[in-house]
Design a protein around this nucleic acid. Structure first.
Length: 463
RNA sequence: GUCCCCAUCGUCUAGCCCGGCCUAGGACACCGGCCUUUCACGCCGGCGACAGGGGUUCGAAUCCCCUUGGGGACGCCA
């Protein structure tokens, strides 16, 4: 029975597009904060804009959250299903004069804003209908009756104290002329109903905060605590957009990134824990705190993500990696990869792959019945001069050498050539590539039967 | 335009709240070297920042002010 309420955060995307990087990071911070404090995390869909909201975006956002492993304790809630609650709140405010009907037409409003701009002020609603005592009418809206003087102050958990003069805030619309509630009203009612204690959201909402605080108070509720995290920018420091590459998190899944790497990357954008760069999810939960979230925007660096992903690929259990590779191998036409071969190859491949796409590419030669010959590898190394070398290697394999490495080195010496002359043709014959793990490793992965078969094929192709 | 916010290497950042330990640390990227049968991994080294100007102080990246620059908001979008 403690007096401090249990921490409750929420992530409320509007389903008007896929989950993008900024949204994912906001979700992550809310999720980490809730988990860190043993609180709960609410997932809510803000779909009051019926025209732009789409079911396909709802499922894609849910999928992206699942991919990242951000589970929620309550929800998904849909604002579109909570209309009576919003209407009741508006009715309540109309009843105690915290709201009023406004009959201004869109054209009239436009003129008012233009007038304010011309006077060197912020374009705002003039308050024309505020004291007119108007009633409901066709095309009318309900507006909030905000305070005319004083200031609204709040202590942002990341930015510190923020103060805005109330006369900078015009009377915002609560109910549209089509009878639907607006964003500001819906969020506030939801956050009250759902008992949200901490609102962690993007920087673009700071200027909305004073108006929402006023709404909380008008609804006789104590506002939650607010924390505004800086935006994520593109390489040119502009808003993140398609030009900067992938902006939707699901794109990173198809490009072969691991969720753990993505989470690590997102967490380190704007948050830090001393010099530490690598964090497991559990460490993130244990260490996360709003005090260490920075105040300035950060640029999303693809190279850093690639580097992190490379790290996670190297440190992920081989069997698990093999499982994750399945769809990427399928894209290469490999439906049923031989698991034994794959498991044998993977330890030699992870150090050279930064993504699962690259890893699948490296694994391909070992999983195919016959390696695909790259034109350049063939032209450079499968030549008339290399034929006797390949033949010698094949003869050696027939004798079943117990130790590959010394045997191959002996062979080079016996042939009177440097290892650098013998190995590239062997690699080309065995993998079809110019680059691969060491030739002995390749042979071990393939096994002597397949090695002999590939050697024979290469020799035959040189006839 | 008006209001709000922000400002350390190219990028992510530590340090800033509680001034001296900062000739500003780490990571990514980049450059060079080592290792090496290729491609990588790894290791070693290098380049590289407190936006500018005023204060306060014995002393400022750290505190205050101004300038400049950047971002956000100003919708019957969220």
């Amino acid at each position: 029975m403690s007096g401090t309420p249990r921490v409750k955060t929420r992530f409320p995307p509007s389903p008007t597009g896929a989950l993008h990087l900024g949204g994912a990071r906001t979700a992550l911070f809310n999720w980490l904060f809730a988990r860190h404090h043993g609180g709960s995390f609410v997932f809510r869909l803000e779909d009051t804009d019926r025209a732009r909201s789409k079911d396909e975006y709802v499922t894609s956002i849910i999928d992206a959250m699942a991919w990242l492993g951000m589970n929620y304790d309550e929800g998904p809630f849909y604002q579109s299903k909570r209309n009576e609650r919003y209407l009741a709140a508006i009715e309540h405010m109309l009843g105690n004069a915290k709201a009023y009907w406004c009959h201004c037409s869109p054209e009239d409003l436009e003129a008012q804003r233009a007038a304010a701009s011309a006077a060197g002020k912020k374009p705002m609603y003039s308050g024309k209908c505020r004291e007119l005592g108007l009633g409901q009418a066709k095309g009318a809206v309900v507006r909030f009756r905000g305070p005319l003087d004083g200031a609204t102050v709040f202590d942002d958990l990341v930015k510190g104290p923020i103060s805005v003069a109330n006369n900078e805030l015009d009377d915002l619309i609560l109910l549209r002329s089509d009878g639907s509630p607006t964003y500001h009203l819906a969020v506030v009612v939801d956050d009250i109903d759902m008992g949200i204690t901490h609102v962690i959201r993007g920087d673009d909402h700071v200027s909305n905060t004073p108006r929402q605080i006023l709404l909380f108070k008008a609804l006789d509720a104590t506002p939650p605590l607010f924390a505004h995290v800086p935006m994520i920018l593109g390489a040119d420091k502009g808003k993140l957009s398609k030009r900067h590459g992938a902006t939707a998190v699901i794109d990173y899944e198809t490009e072969g990134f691991l969720p753990a790497a993505m989470l690590n990357m997102l967490a380190r954008l704007g948050w830090s824990h001393g010099d530490q760069e690598i964090f497991s999810v559990q460490e993130l939960i244990d260490l996360f705190s709003l005090e260490h979230v920075g105040k300035s925007p950060s640029v999303f660096d693809q190279d850093k993500l690639l580097n992190l992903n490379h790290h996670y690929i190297q440190h992920t259990d081989i069997a698990k990696l093999a499982d994750m590779l399945t769809p990427f191998l399928r894209n290469l036409g490999i439906e049923q990869p031989d698991r034994t071969t794959l498991l044998a190859a993977l330890p030699h491949l992870t150090q050279r792959a930064r993504t699962l796409v690259e890893l699948a590419h490296w694994a391909e030669p070992y999983l195919l019945d016959e390696p695909k010959m790259e034109a350049e590898a063939k032209a450079k190394f499968l030549t008339a001069e290399s034929k006797p070398l390949l033949q010698a290697a094949l003869d050696l394999m027939e004798s079943q050498p117990p130790q590959l490495e010394p045997a191959m080195k002996e062979l080079a010496k016996a042939l009177g050539v440097k290892p650098g002359a013998l190995f590239p043709p062997l690699r080309a014959a065995l993998t079809g590539r110019q680059a691969s793990p060491g030739v002995y490793e390749v042979m071990a992965i393939l096994g002597s039967q397949r090695v002999k078969k590939r050697l024979k094929q290469a020799i035959d192709s040189l006839r």
